[in-house]
Design a protein around this nucleic acid. Structure first.
Lengths: 235, 235
DNA sequence: CGGCATCCGGGAAGATACTG
DNA sequence: CAGTATCTTCCCGGATGCCG
């Protein structure tokens, strides 16, 4: 019975030529954009996606992956002989979705209801760096900072007022400083004003390398001021 | 029972500090972002929102307006005595959502499945101008172009490689050219390569003022090339 | 007529259990 | 590990009706 869906129910769409509406047709279902977000620094396996998206259920993740694959946003890749594992990877066009997350993040950071102390995935933390990077503050600053987060590592390179971030295991010899710990602890240092020393003595964060440089690096990211809850419309 | 929240209305949330996730908590429900889109050039009434969002039902629109008001994205304004009408208007922070639509639009325009011939609201058309504006093409070009669209008018001002658009009734004396017609017809001229002359003789578009300037203006907007459906993974 | 509440059917999301 | 199967719950969309 449910096979007959192609004709009468033409795949719930906004039927709107507006680009934003089409984007939501492709990725507007619950969890879809967050699945893309988790893949923005490179491929992941099904179980990693589940772990990094707490709350998503397996069947919903399966549906989203199918839908996004059909939309051309991502594809699944099999590794041939020994590692029979399978990963999901964004297509080149899928990777171009990053500005969407930057725009969403910049806007939501000013929401009166935004709570930066909630859980945070490793990808979200790195994405927040790309979102909140202050180019003028970084002027003339050059640094390579490594991150060892629960599931994977990243290396952030600040230079010439730009910030590049790649997912790769940081080697101590290749970076100026290395931070190890869960993403919320790093966020507390960058956005919460918690001193690195305190996080270290509390056992939340490990730091090796140039301590002052690490602090300077973390000061490059500023949450924008919150919008007023009630705007100034005289009444 | 074992879950959190004594109040059973636990308000489904991603529970994620990531800005993008919070943005979706606020405006990720169906139609919510499109409601914001329709208000991005100024306040509208309930019935205008319904008319410009074909497919939305009254109760869903009511729910979205309530939710967005509670989130501080918009507010409802009453006009006192004579005009007992009521309008919905974005808060200052709500207006800051525009980059989200630009990012979504830029990305979706490259979707293999994007169909620019679908219906288009007046706001979507103007937003597409702001999204697809090519600053280098507009270098040294200065123009004021008015639009008379079904429900309301707009004036676009290109100058110094920038484009400003305001919702206001265009007066012939104040603009260099004036286009009148339904949004899809204007879109056909800007993006579909349909000559203005043809749209005029077909009765789809009315044009007064500087014809060459209007054509030049419409050439400032270019849809990006579509992404390849299947990326270069050898198979 | 504009701005909602209410009821209902279908379908999507969420939780859990199960299978290759 | 990578999903599928099943069941329940909730949301979306349409219709109707109230009320200013």
């Amino acid at each position: 019975m449910q096979l007959q869906k192609a004709t009468d129910t033409a795949k719930r769409s906004y039927n709107d030529a507006c680009g934003a509406a089409h984007a939501l047709d492709l990725a507007g279902e619950r969890w879809a954009l967050l699945v893309i977000r988790e893949l923005i620094f490179g491929p992941k396996r099904f179980s990693d996606l589940r772990a990094d998206l707490p709350g998503i259920s397996a069947n919903v993740l399966t549906q989203r992956l199918e839908g996004l694959e059909a939309a051309g946003v991502l594809l699944r890749r099999r590794f041939p002989p020994p590692a029979a594992t399978q990963v999901y990877e964004l297509t080149p066009w899928g990777y171009e979705a990053e500005p969407i997350f930057v725009a969403l993040g910049r806007w939501a950071a000013r929401s009166p209801a935004h709570d930066p102390t909630l859980p945070l995935s490793a990808v979200s933390l790195m994405l927040s760096f790309r979102t909140m990077f202050d180019a003028t503050r970084a002027d003339g600053f050059k640094a390579r900072v490594g991150f060892r987060l629960p599931r994977d590592g990243f290396v952030a390179r600040a230079a010439k007022g730009r910030l590049r971030i790649r997912r790769e295991e940081p080697r101590e010899a290749d970076v100026d400083a290395l931070l190890a710990g869960p993403p919320p602890a790093v966020a507390a240092a960058a956005y919460g004003g918690v001193p690195l020393d305190q996080l270290e003595t509390d056992g939340l964060l490990g730091l090796t390398g140039d301590r002052a440089l690490a602090a300077r690096f973390l000061s490059l990211f500023l949450l924008p001021p919150k919008a007023v809850a009630a705007p100034g419309v005289a009444d």
